[in-house]
Amino acid sequence: MSNAPLLEVRGLNAWYGESHVLHGVDLDIREGETVTLLGRNGAGKTTTLRSIMGILRLREGAIRLRGEDILGLPLHKVAQAGIGYVPEERGIFASLNVSENLTLPPTVSKDGMSVEEIYELFPNLYERRSSQGTKLSGGEQQMLAIARVLRTGAKVILLDEPTEGLAPVIVQRIGDVLTALKKRGMTILLVEQNFRFARKVADRFYLMEDGRMVNAFPGHELDARMDELHEVLGV
């Protein structure tokens, strides 16, 4: 069964109030894969992550984790089922210090990293463990947001634009972290605008437009498809 997808999305429709924002999205991620969603701003990438997570509740279709439908679960059960979420806005809590932020999400399996391992991977966070969470730099906050879900033992990580607004040296650092996570067999669904960053880590790409999946291709075809992508993404 190793070829069965770990996370499987079928015919996903979603609405913000009256407005229909996802139109029959299909998506597969196998265990250990890193899959990247590409698309213009407003194409529905973040909405797809929020719908899988269950933050956006007005949905139809199927979302299966290891074959089990999680679409009907209450929000907190989705994380408990093994999905970790790193939101675009990072979601670091101002009223919690770094170490409280790190240990906030309850662990969902025994496979998570220990706090010691995490501080080894992110020495900056260890040094600033008593600082207020939002006093960290943007890059450190992003590291903290990623570290936070690594501790829980989530099977799949939904990562929304981790490099947005960060300096190149920090982007590279985050790339190293993702590579390390891949080596550990982590399954990652990444939303990313930064090609150069995504090509290093992604096994496959999906292309979204107007709330639909319009294309899917393996990572090594990225270079050959550059012209086509530039046209769709307008970059």
């Binding site: 933050i55 979601g91 999400p105 309850p106 829980t152």
Partner: peptide, 8 residues
């Protein structure tokens, strides 16, 4: 919402 999305 985010705290609940973390499984609380």
């Amino acid at each position: 919402t985010l705290v609940q999305a973390f499984g609380v």
